[in-house]
């Protein structure tokens, strides 16, 4: 039982990472209707920035904030420079553009920062494990879950209590009506991409030090996050969080109890994506698109 609970806690910790990256995916999907396959690599680049800053001697917290700020600017620029010119193209074109961005960022980090694995990433908090009963709860789990909770509260306040949040929701719902009301739609989209990039940066700098930083660090995480967003519904922030936690727990329990899948645990997210698409394509919390004639 304690082993089960330990794995459950691990799963929730990982799930918090998937949830925050899935939130970033949802943020972009709701405002621009794009599945951003480059979300993970954007977070990867952010984490390299974090590594670079700490390598130059910046304190960890300052490095995190600097990486997030630069990621925000970078995300906004990606929207303006890469996405805007093709925003009215077919979904196929958009998918290919974000996959191209994925490959480009993945190559750029290797050229810019080297392809060796960086293991000297400083931690933002000390390693520690609590053992209430026989259950093990690591500091990683608590920090990741705490980060997710703070992010959720801040996003809620942003979208429900501020004018810019209201304008972003208006753009997501009907960009034409928002534009006719004088909302600068382009700036809102840049803001959304910037926000998503900063959110990904936060997830990246907190999770990657646990697994080591290299060009492939974010790839399986992105697959799990896509599964989370698909499970929860690509248009639902609540769904992204719930989906992330479910996927994280499913991964941890599978690793523990289904030895046949050791080494191919990526089967879990792919299975979830497939299952969701067959049974409930809009996801648990997503809205079925109904066109009223």
């Amino acid at each position: 039982m304690s082993l089960f609970l330990t794995q459950l806690m691990n799963g929730i910790g990982n799930g918090a990472v998937y949830a925050s990256l899935a939130l970033a995916l949802v943020l972009i999907f709701r405002t621009t209707g794009i599945l951003n396959f480059a979300q993970g690599e954007m977070a990867l680049y952010s984490t390299y920035l974090f590594w670079y800053f700490t390598d130059r001697g910046l304190p960890v917290v300052v490095a995190i904030l600097a990486a997030m700020a630069l990621s925000f600017i970078g995300g906004a620029l990606v929207e303006r420079v890469v996405i805007r010119p093709v925003e009215h193209s077919s979904p196929l074109v958009l998918v290919i553009v974000t996959i191209g961005l994925f490959l480009a960022l993945n190559s750029i980090v290797q050229v810019q920062f080297g392809s060796d694995i960086k293991t000297n990433l400083p931690r933002a908090y000390p390693k520690h494990t609590w053992r209430p009963g026989n259950v093990q709860i690591s500091a990683d789990t608590l920090v990741l879950v705490g980060m997710l909770a703070v992010v959720c509260v801040l996003l809620y306040l942003l979208f429900q209590r501020t004018k810019i949040g209201l304008a972003m929701r208006a753009v997501a719902s009907s960009s034409e009506s928002a534009r006719l009301s004088g909302v600068p739609v382009g700036q809102m989209l840049m803001f959304g991409w910037g926000l998503a990039a900063a959110l990904g940066a936060l997830a990246g700098v907190l999770v990657i030090p646990q697994i080591g930083l290299q060009a492939s660090s974010m790839q399986s995480i992105l697959v799990f996050s896509f599964a989370a967003a698909a499970l929860g519904g690509f248009d639902s922030p609540v769904g992204a969080v719930v989906g992330g936690l479910i996927v994280g727990v499913a991964e941890a329990l599978t690793t523990q109890y289904v030895h046949a899948l050791n080494g191919i645990v990526l089967i879990v997210p792919f299975g979830l994506i497939l299952g969701v698409l067959m049974v409930r394509p809009q996801g648990l919390f997503g809205r079925r698109t109904v066109e009223r004639v």
Partner: peptide, 26 residues
């Protein structure tokens, strides 16, 4: 110049009050 487009130019996911606040965005 305010434009009321053809066929329900409302922002359907926002509440009535929020729609009105968006109208005053500028």
């Amino acid at each position: 110049i305010a434009h009321v487009p053809q066929g329900r130019g409302t922002i359907v996911d926002l509440t009535v009050a929020e729609n009105l606040r968006i109208g005053a965005y500028r």
